[in-house]
Amino acid sequence: MISKFRQVLNSGKFVVTSEIGPPKGTNIEKMLHHIDLLKDKVDALNVTDHQSSVMRFPSIGGCLAIKEQGGEPILQMTCRDRNRLALQAELLLAYTRGIRNVLCLTGDAIPVGDHKEAKGVFDLDSVQLLRAIRQMEAGKDLGGNELDGTIEFCAGAIVTPEARPIEPQLIKFEKKVEAGAEFFQTQAVYDLDNFAKFMQYARQFSVKILAGIVLLSSASMAKYMTENVPGIFVPKYLIDELASAPRGEALNKGKEIAGRMVATLKKESICDGVHIMAIRREEVVPDILAIAGL
């Protein structure tokens, strides 16, 4: 069984992914509801891995739930919490349970999260993790030992097109491509002209790029992200547009902006697809898709 998601990526269709944030605790009702709501509307669903270094229900648990409901999961794996033994073991487990897509990330730093005194692992980095996958696919683990049964994954990574300075980020992007990344989901992009420039550069590599779309829920949230989240810049005209929305309508305005961006990216064939992140508001993703005409 090969990755359904890889088939979609290679089909030439405009690809849509979204993501699920698992709960802090065992109450998975809401997560299951979100999966149910989204699994047939998108090509694949990421499950975040202790996003922002906040301890939660694990990514692999969410991915298994997606499989059970007939969806296509993308397992997010960060290098923050597991050493090379644990990462490889999880890849073995994921493979045997039918998970075929992995997104390799370095992971946020421990001090930004909610277990500030924990030990950050970072035994591998994202580039090394991608290479580990390819090496295991060839039949050997990182210790050089033969595997009794191998894996096969559609492996992806992330890139921040608005990072400043950009050149070190692009060098790392190229290292990820060389390491075997097939697709990239980007950090949130808002300035589509800037993003189109990034795409001109990225087109020289044979990888698929899904633009990160993060729902803006209010003008203050947009401002906060621009000021505090590395690599995110919301242009002033979008902040003004959000601020101009009538009382209680900011979220709708945010959905409209996101939908409009998705539609433009598709219409102008700027990139290969989108990755929609509606952090803690997963239920509005279908509205964004409807606005985008998808």
Binding site: T106, G107, P111, F122, V127, A163, P168, K172, K175, P230
Partner: peptide
């Protein structure tokens, strides 16, 4: 580097500063 990375910056790098501080 806060994360001891060997292959280049993480996505948290911000105008020459580190995501932790």
């Amino acid at each position: 580097c806060h994360k001891g990375l060997l292959n280049g910056p993480c996505g948290g790098t911000n105008n020459g500063k580190c995501e932790v501080d």
